[in-house]
């Protein structure tokens, strides 16, 4: 008997998504020392945002949230992350995933990350985290510029990386518009 099967490989299966998430988390944690660079007096570390964009585009919003959460936990355990960045990363990852899913456009995905982590997260921290930790709502809006510059850098790197991976034929973004 001769049969012929034609199948497409995709990141769709749970196994693949879990494996990609594992590796993305490892990137998010391991790369932090290599990717920080100074802007003015502050040090900016765009790795987390960069990984968020990759996870959002490749794995979708839910897995992106898982990835961001696990990165946050591990970074806190290792003493290299801040609790403040923790909810922010998750919001950004989710928005990025949602935007990408709706538009199939990586720039929209990256935009979701910037809006989520750069703008919504500081406000959310100000209203939800700060009262617990600091006893009052304080204008964490002061953090916006630093958050924003690091997310923009991270999102830009994310787009760059996706381009590169696609050209290398490592990932395939179905129906993707540039």
């Amino acid at each position: 008997m001769i049969i012929e099967v034609q199948t497409r490989k995709s990141i769709a299966s749970d196994t693949r998504k879990a494996a990609y998430a594992v590796v993305l988390v490892a990137i998010g944690v391991a790369l932090a020392p290599y990717t920080s660079f100074p802007i003015g007096i502050a040090k900016v570390n765009p790795t987390q945002h960069f990984v968020n964009v990759l996870a959002a585009v490749l794995l979708g919003p839910w897995w992106a949230v898982v990835t961001a959460a696990v990165i946050g936990i591990i970074r806190n355990v290792l003493g290299v992350g801040t609790l403040l960045a923790f909810p922010g990363g998750m919001i950004g990852a989710f928005l990025a995933g949602l935007f990408y899913r709706q538009t199939r456009n990586v720039y929209a995905g990256a935009g979701g990350e910037v809006i989520g982590t750069g703008l919504i997260a500081p406000v959310a921290s100000a209203f939800f985290v700060a009262p617990f930790l600091m006893g009052k709502v304080i204008p964490l809006v002061a953090l916006v510029p630093s958050f924003l510059s690091s997310t923009i850098a991270g999102a830009a790197l994310g787009i760059l990386a996706l381009n590169l991976l696609q050209r290398a034929d490592i990932v395939e973004l179905a129906g993707r518009k540039m």
Binding site: M1, I2, I3, E4, V5, Q6, T7, R8, K9, S10
Partner: peptide
Amino acid sequence: FGGSLQGD
């Protein structure tokens, strides 16, 4: 891996 396969 997907791909195309003929035979048994």
